[in-house]
Simulated assay, not measured.
Amino acid sequence: MDIVLDNLTRFFDPLLFALVLGGVLLMAWIQNGRSSLGLAFAALLNSGRDPFSESGENATFMCRRIDFVLRERGLVGLESLRSEDKFVTSVIAKLLHSKDAKLFEEWARLQQNIVQKRQDVTASYWSAASEIAPAIGLIGTIIGLIQLFATGIDPMKMGPAMSFTLLTSLYGLFVSHIIAFPIHVRLQARAQILNSYRDAVVQHSIAIAKRELVILGPVHFSPHKPSRAVG
């Protein structure tokens, strides 16, 4: 047990590891935008399970439910239709209360683009972190080598400098391949499932809107003409 503890303390420097990890998270945040850090860590809460794993919900299932409700009860029946995905529920609710097919299509595509970007930024953040981490480790290695050469050939000072040099590279590789990249792969798989599901429901809802709702013509406003003074 003592041997394990000795090796653990030899390979783990909490301060140095925190510096490497903090540098990686900071650079990934700068690369992906100010909201990416919060979204990336919030996504970790649900990353351990597949979307709709408990309910078995999927795009085909939801589109058939929508068609069944429309056939049996009409548009009013959509009020009771719910999905495990909040975005899909909002699309159905919007379809129920829409009067213009064109306006519904514009709204649905805009909202789909917004949620897709939010979904993709989580995987993109951890992908950036996995790419940045080795570079952060290499920077630490170069700093350590500079410190080593600056001290000369003093055996008493070579040890800490060599330790710093090797540990930064080790931590960079660890953060990249053991932490960030597996998270990226997992979140990217979730994003593909959700984006594909949402796209199918949006396309189906737009087709229903074009069939069930009217398409109002654009409103033209004539410019105001100032009246001429009389006299």
Rank of each mutant, 00 (worst) to 15 (best):
106 E>F: 02
68 F>V: 00
27 M>N: 07
7 N>D: 01
103 L>V: 07
18 A>S: 10
26 L>Y: 07
122 T>W: 01
37 L>I: 04
134 P>V: 01
82 R>Q: 10
176 S>L: 03
158 M>T: 07
223 P>K: 02
43 A>C: 02
79 E>N: 13
155 P>N: 10
113 N>T: 09
3 I>Q: 08
12 F>D: 13
94 K>V: 02
139 I>T: 09
138 L>C: 07
199 D>G: 08
68 F>W: 00
176 S>Q: 06
196 S>C: 12
178 I>Q: 11
213 L>I: 14
187 L>H: 05
125 Y>V: 01
95 L>G: 13
156 M>I: 10
144 G>F: 00
5 L>D: 10
132 I>G: 04
132 I>S: 02
139 I>M: 04
146 I>R: 13
166 L>F: 07
197 Y>K: 10
12 F>G: 09
97 H>I: 02
144 G>A: 01
40 A>T: 09
57 E>L: 04
221 F>N: 15
174 F>H: 12
98 S>A: 01
141 T>G: 14
203 Q>N: 04
230 V>N: 09
110 L>Q: 02
129 A>D: 09
167 L>E: 05
27 M>H: 12
184 H>F: 08
141 T>P: 08
63 C>I: 03
66 I>S: 13
25 L>T: 11
81 L>T: 07
226 P>W: 03
186 R>H: 11
119 Q>M: 07
39 L>N: 10
21 L>D: 03
151 T>N: 05
176 S>H: 05
141 T>Y: 06
146 I>Q: 15
227 S>T: 09
